[in-house]
Amino acid sequence: MGKTKSTTILVFVCCAAILGFAGPVFAYEAGMVKTVRGQVRIERDGGTLEARVGDAVHERDRVIVQDASSVGISMSDETLLSIGHNSTMVIDKYSYDPVTREGQVATSILKGTLRYVTGLIGRARPQAIKVTTNNATIGIRGTEFIVEVLDENEK
């Protein structure tokens, strides 16, 4: 009797685990490159890729935009990013469950300019969104904004 009971529980746990994994199949594809102008690179796992429209974007990617270039990226939770010329942006953390809308987005802009449009994670939990720069952290309450990193000589 005890044996049957524990077997049943084991089966249920296995099913739940499988369903959990079956859900976010595209979870590792945090986002997609939608627009590219000029030269844009993505550094990932020690390698470099030339970014093209339709390319996937992953957590921990470093996006490097050259002179006279720009890139637009949309994340799976509908966060929209555009990054301007001579910029370096990193996707520090990204996770999103479309069923519960839970997740987190943490990005940094180390150089250049970034336009940030909050997606569905931010609408449900603004605290789950973080943008970091060399000097600051930015917290949001459901918003769009621009961040520009200035050189010492710039006004």
């Binding site: 720069t133 000097n135 600051a136 918003t143 769009e144 621009i146 961040v147 200035l150």
Partner: peptide
């Protein structure tokens, strides 16, 4: 570096 952060309207 310094940074400038600008809020945009929804």
């Amino acid at each position: 570096t310094r940074e400038r952060v600008i809020l945009l309207p929804q």
